[in-house]
Amino acid sequence: MASELEAGRGWIVATTCAVVALLGVAVAVRGIEGAPRVEPFDRPTEADAIREPLQFLGRGAALRIAELGPRISAESQTAWRAAYRAPFDLKDCPQTAEWLVTPAGQRLERLLGDLRRGTREDALAALALVFQLARATEWKPGLLAKTQHAEKLAGFAQDWLRAWSERAASEPVLAEPALATVLAYGLWMKRVSQPRPIGRRDEAYDRALAFLQSILRDGSGRPTALYEALRARHPGVVSGFEGGRDALDAFEAAALQLFPELNGECP
């Protein structure tokens, strides 16, 4: 009997050593440090990636818009060449919705749809055109509370975010433009929901809030990557959004800080 036990001593020692090692590892793993979060816009990009993509959405977009031409996908090239200059060549500040029903406006609207369904460069080009349209047309509701113009721009932003917000949050090229679009959407919907200084259209406000919730929180209420990026870049906006008061105020303020010329009147 004793000899049987002695014979098994080898594996007892081996298992004991394994358990001791495992216990040591169980203690040691507690010291693994987590790497700090790196936002998509802080990650290194490929050598031929578009630099400073936010410039395509700013006032100087006209200077760089031609850079996007060669990067547009082949299917959209013809439509791009035919329509991309239209918002940059706009004169006399037409009203947004009115201009969009003109042949040039319709061509642009079709192009925006094509670009939204294309590559990430196409998506960036679509945003550049929407922001330029917002700068070159009038969409301020005014005393008569004409909200259809801002609603049209908010609709373009919403369509783009619906298609791209999830992917854009992890794309170094699209992350910042996506955040800017979220802010601009908040600004435009603020004008739609509150066209005059007093009073609010709850239907539009609730619609805007529901859409923002859908892109900033997942199905179980946890923050999405876009939310995390927004929190890193514009913490005040997230606080305002979670604050329970007029959530769109924070979006409006941040959008106007980023794009002061987006006031609904042509500069």
Partner: peptide
């Protein structure tokens, strides 16, 4: 006895880690 010790060590190992938003394993601290 040995098998139960292995279970305890494995349990301790799993209780000592958490997963961060990038999917990496991070310790729960000492």
């Amino acid at each position: 006895l040995l098998a139960s010790c292995v279970l305890i060590a494995l349990g301790g190992l799993l209780l000592g880690v958490q997963v961060d938003s990038s999917g990496a394993l991070v310790g729960t601290g000492f």
